[in-house]
């Protein structure tokens, strides 16, 4: 996004909004992760405690999802940069 035509007050406003959105995005990712990993890893309801197998699955699921998001984010940023360069030429 291009904020070069924003004055100081407008940039300050946008910074506050972006910070708020980043917190909301983080919270959304958190509950999204809980839901996704629970749905995939927990299929035994004969006990209320997490089994060792389930816990390992949850930890791997969480870690892998974060690495996945990071990789998607990196590729996405590259493509946006390329598209922006193409536009400026």
């Amino acid at each position: 996004m291009d904020f070069s035509n924003f004055n100081g007050a407008e940039q300050a406003h946008m910074t506050k909004i972006i910070e708020k959105r980043q917190m909301q995005d983080f919270l959304r990712m958190y509950s999204n992760l809980v839901e996704k990993c629970f749905n995939t890893c927990c299929n035994d309801f004969t006990s209320k405690a997490l089994s060792t197998k389930e816990e390992t699955c949850i930890m791997n699921c969480t870690e892998k999802f974060i690495k996945h998001s990071e990789r998607v984010g990196a590729r996405f940023a590259e493509q946006n940069a390329e598209a922006m360069n193409a536009q400026n030429q």
Binding site: M1, Q11, Y30, L33, E55, I58, T62, S69, E70
Partner: peptide
């Protein structure tokens, strides 16, 4: 468990957050 994991990853998460909004939210 997921909350603990996210906290222990701290820095890495911050990076992921930046990647997610990568490029298009820098003022």
């Amino acid at each position: 468990k997921v909350g603990e994991k996210l906290q222990s990853r701290g820095a890495a998460n911050a990076a992921a957050g930046n990647a997610a909004t990568g490029g298009f939210t820098s003022l």
